[in-house]
Computed example of a mutant assay.
Amino acid sequence: MLQPPVPLPSEIWSLVFRYLSVRDKSSVRASCKYFKKLVDHASLWKGWTVVLTFPNGPYSEQFWNTLRRRKVSSAVVRSRRAKHWIVVSVGLPGLSTVVIEGLNRESTHWLKHFTCLKRLAVRSCSSFIRESFVVPQREQLTHLSLCDVDFSFKSLRGFIFSLSRFSRLTSLVYHQRRILDNGTRMIYHILSCRPNLKHLSLNIFRGLGSCSSTGTKPPPPSRRPLALTSGNGHCSNPTAFSKTQKSQAPP
Rank of each mutant, 00 (worst) to 15 (best):
K83I: 09
D24W: 01
I187N: 12
P58W: 08
R157D: 01
R123Q: 07
G233Y: 07
V39I: 15
T49P: 11
Y59Q: 13
P225A: 00
P93M: 00
S127W: 06
G207I: 06
L2C: 04
P219I: 04
L120F: 03
A82F: 06
S79I: 12
R29P: 09
S155M: 03
S127F: 03
R119D: 07
K112G: 00
H175E: 15
E106N: 09
S145F: 05
F114P: 14
S201N: 12
F35H: 15
K154F: 00
R138I: 09
N232G: 01
L2A: 06
V149D: 08
K71Q: 15
R29W: 08
A240W: 07
H189K: 14
V22A: 02
W48S: 09
A227L: 10
V99C: 11
W64L: 02
P220G: 06
F114N: 11
I160G: 02
N232I: 07
L20T: 07
V77P: 06
H189D: 15
L103K: 09
S26D: 12
S107L: 00
G215L: 09
I204R: 12
S21A: 01
D150V: 11
H84E: 13
H234T: 10
P221F: 00
V28Y: 03
R178K: 15
L103M: 12
V90F: 04
K46E: 14
S230I: 01
S242R: 14
P238W: 04
S126L: 03
R224S: 12
P219F: 00
R69D: 08
L141W: 03
L172N: 08
V50F: 07
M186N: 08
S201G: 07
M1Y: 05
P5L: 01
R18S: 03
S210H: 14
I129L: 12
S73G: 10
Q140M: 11
L15S: 10
S155H: 04
L52Y: 14
P4C: 01
N237C: 11
L117F: 00
L180H: 14
V173R: 13
K217R: 14
V99A: 05
R70S: 04
K37G: 07
R178F: 06
S230Q: 05
S242G: 05
L191A: 15
A75V: 13
R105Y: 01
R168H: 06
H199T: 13
P7S: 02
F128N: 12
S60Q: 13
R105P: 01
C116I: 01
